[in-house]
Design a protein around this nucleic acid. Structure first.
Length: 485
RNA sequence: GGCCCGUUGGUCAAGCGGUCAAGACGCGGCCCUCUCACGGCUGAAACAAGGGUUCGAUUCCCUUACGGGUCACCA
């Protein structure tokens, strides 16, 4: 049998990391077994409608490569794939359930339910619907219906025995039927509740594996009873532990946790995010950590899913993102970095590709770029303290004499290449009989004006060009002379 | 509160009766080196507690503690 999973997000206007991970696992469960991954938009809550929200869902799936096989935008055999367009069918199925004795009309007012609840509130008493309307006679029901009295339809739970369902990650779970509330299937406005719509939709879309957050674990017995009542085959359940911000709280946009779009804007790569969240709650059979989506499709296995919640660790994501950047070929990296480089460096004579090469091994996110390359554009103000470096065995005096010695040597270079700069400086080191660092550290410092820089003296000199390099060295000499006089 | 679920280093996690309890991130140290970064090596760091079962428990069972979920005409 073909595996079919579905991703069923509500269009909220952003892609929550927890939801994205659910989508990923749904995709992988399907694709690891040549199955189909379906997108269904759950937009029944019209009040929460957000403009452009469905586009964000499409974009995210697109960027991450979680390509769906059926969905509102591409169609499919089991549409429509937008829940609001399926509204016609639910009432019929609810009525079928009534006929079969698994559901019943309820005319109780909101007020009555509220007092019912508040009278039970104070203690351990479990507040359940009291089945006031279960005993209504056929005549009474018809009379109420004819009078146009608002009604809901409730699922009639068994009062005895237990219900057991199997979950792939949590195992067999059994509950007392007496614990189950007669949940509402159809609301007074004629719309189905989520609980009901899901069962009906999943059934008709032939979903074989229902994959969702563990918050649905406790309502799953009710779903199962619904499948039984219809005499439909229940799906395989895969409940996923939550993705947490810390030990006590789930990740939530409301509390400032980043959405997928936020991460992308902060310079994270979609591939790295996907890779990272795959590892949050799942682990492969070996120790591999870097996976392309294709590789995940190959080796994903449900048995690697874990039961306990995991905390989202931005540091590890950041590390992984750095790995992706480092492992890229130079051209791809340049394409990725180009815009940020151009924004950070106004001087158009500089060779951005050379700068990109220096950057690639030094970035964790793309947003690190501006602060690393600022000095190329303009030499920052700096203190001559920078020239003092214990390990390089430099003092301000040594720095001054090194810079003075370097100046004519560099001026003499006619063909300004990194090789020639290298040879000239290294032979100067020989002539002066000093350590490499005693010459190169001062030069690097003069060229960058920073305590650290991507690249050393020779690389920076090459990129800055002869004229600018000499200018900066002269500035360094001047500063040092001022300090020392 | 009832019910359900969970608990291995700070974090992600392997483990599925016998291990010196992997690996990764982060943190510390060393090496490489013209700074930073990369790379290499290395160190500290964990089975929530108590009872069983067993020749032997991180692993199986029970209890406790702590944490999470759920108890809507929301999804």
């Amino acid at each position: 049998m073909e595996i079919r999973t579905r991703f069923a997000p509500s269009p909220t206007g952003y892609m929550h990391i927890g939801n994205l991970r659910t989508a990923l696992y749904e995709y992988l469960i399907a694709k690891s077994q040549n199955g189909k991954f379906i997108l269904r938009i759950e937009d029944t809550d019209q009040e929460r409608f957000v403009e452009g929200a469905t586009e964000i869902i499409y974009n995210t799936l697109n960027m991450t490569g979680l390509k769906h096989d059926e969905g509102p935008d591409i169609g499919g055999e089991y549409g429509p794939y937008i829940q609001s367009q399926r509204m016609g069918m639910y009432m019929d199925y609810a009525k079928e359930l009534i006929k079969k004795g698994h559901a019943y009309y309820c005319f109780c007012t909101k007020e009555r339910l509220d007092t019912l609840k508040s009278s039970n509130e104070k203690g351990d008493a479990f507040s359940k619907y009291d089945r006031h309307c279960l005993t209504l006679s056929q005549e009474e029901i018809q009379k109420n219906l004819d009078a146009g009295m608002p009604f809901v339809i409730r699922q009639k739970m068994p009062t005895e025995g237990t219900t057991t369902f199997h979950d792939v990650v949590y195992g067999d779970i059994t509950v007392e039927n007496a614990e189950l509330d007669d949940q509402i299937l159809m609301k007074a406005d004629g719309f189905p509740t989520y609980n009901f719509a899901n069962v009906v939709d999943d059934h008709f879309m032939k979903i074989t594996h229902v994959v969702r957050g563990s918050e649905y674990l406790s309502s799953t017995p009710k779903y199962n009873l619904l499948y039984d009542a219809f005499d439909w085959e229940a799906p395989v359940y895969v409940h996923l532990p939550a993705v947490m911000r810390d030990a006590h709280n789930k990740l939530s946009k409301r509390h400032g946790d980043k959405s997928f779009e936020d991460l992308i804007n902060e310079g994270y790569l979609p591939e790295a995010v996907v890779n990272y969240i795959a590892l949050l709650g799942w682990s492969p059979s070996d120790n591999k950590e870097i996976f392309s989506l294709k590789e995940l499709e190959q080796c994903f296995n449900i048995s690697g899913l874990s039961k306990s919640p995991s905390i989202f660790d931005i540091k590890k994501l950041t590390w992984l993102n750095g790995e992706y950047i480092k492992n890229m070929d130079a051209e791809s990296f340049y394409i990725l970095a180009e815009n940020r480089l151009k924004n950070a460096i106004k001087n158009t004579t500089l060779d951005l590709k050379k700068i990109a090469v220096l950057l690639q091994k030094r970035l964790e996110t793309l947003n690190d770029i501006p602060r690393l390359v600022d000095f190329f554009d303009a030499l920052p103000e700096y203190s001559t303290d920078l020239y003092i470096h214990k390990k390089m065995k430099t003092t301000e005096e040594i720095a001054l004499s090194s810079l003075k010695a370097a100046l004519p040597v560099l001026e003499n270079i006619t063909d300004w290449t990194e090789n020639n700069i290298h040879d000239a400086l290294m032979s100067l080191v020989q002539t002066l009989g000093i350590k490499n660092g005693q010459l190169l550290w001062p030069v690097r410092t003069a060229l960058s004006g920073e305590p650290t820089s991507p690249g050393g003296a020779m690389e920076l000199a090459d990129i800055l060009g002869k004229e600018e390099s000499l200018k900066r060295i002269k500035i360094g000499i001047e500063k040092l002379q001022n300090t020392l006089s």
